[in-house]
């Protein structure tokens, strides 16, 4: 499994608090039984009008095409636990998300896919979003080892990230099945001690 230490690229801003996973991906796309096509759908109803014409959402603006970092505000990804939300962002091209705060389940889902969810203050995010709107070609580097965000090679700010999530990413242990399976013997012991598992 790959270690994720640095993520580089342009950034795309999506502004607003409490952007829920229904807005990130409408439920009708959850009827597909694979994640393969999810990259077509992020923010679908906010991006396209009834005739399917783009409405000028940042995900469709030419200057943000090819962006790998996503800049968001508070409580991003709240609501439904649907992993289709981070899957759709990832398959569109998002490799890292920086925000003021993240909903718990969403952040957990991102880590499982190797997407860091880094947090900065409200003032810092405001600056970042303004900066990327003014200069969309700014090249950012999210350095998980140093917990710094660089803009065009210069240190711009320090960010926070949940330490266990950071460890999983930088040590390449974010795909957890193998790690959990390795403790199968111990799992069985714990299960055996639980009164309800042994049938009381």
């Amino acid at each position: 499994m790959s270690k994720i230490n640095q993520i580089e690229g342009k950034a795309v801003p999506v502004e607003g608090n409490d952007i829920d996973t229904d807005r990130i991906i409408p439920a009708r796309y959850l009827k597909e039984i694979t994640f393969t096509n999810m990259g077509k759908y992020p923010f679908y109803d906010e991006r396209f009008d009834a005739e399917g014409k783009p409405k000028g959402h940042p995900f469709d603006l030419p200057q943000f095409q090819g962006a790998h970092l996503l800049f968001v505000n508070q409580n991003f990804g709240c609501g439904s636990s649907r992993e289709h939300a981070p899957q759709s962002l990832m398959r569109w091209g998002v490799r890292a998300i920086i925000g003021e705060s993240f909903a718990e389940i969403f952040a957990g889902n991102c880590t499982m896919l190797g997407i860091p969810t880094a947090t900065v203050s409200q003032a810092e995010m405001k600056k970042l979003q303004e900066m990327v709107k003014a200069n969309p070609n700014t090249h950012f580097t999210l350095d998980l080892d140093k917990k710094t965000l660089l803009a065009d090679g210069k240190e711009h700010l320090k960010f926070d990230i949940h330490e266990s999530k950071r460890n999983a990413l930088v040590n390449g242990t974010w795909d957890t099945t193998g790690i959990l399976l390795a403790n199968a013997g111990k799992t069985a012991e714990v299960a055996k001690k639980l009164p309800y598992v042994s049938g009381f």
Binding site: S81, G108, M112, A168, T177, L180, N183
Partner: peptide
């Protein structure tokens, strides 16, 4: 939980 975590619970009956 999300789907990749569902995978973990199916395969190991555990979550991280």
């Amino acid at each position: 939980i999300g789907t990749t975590q569902v995978r973990d619970v199916l395969a190991t009956q555990c979550l991280s």
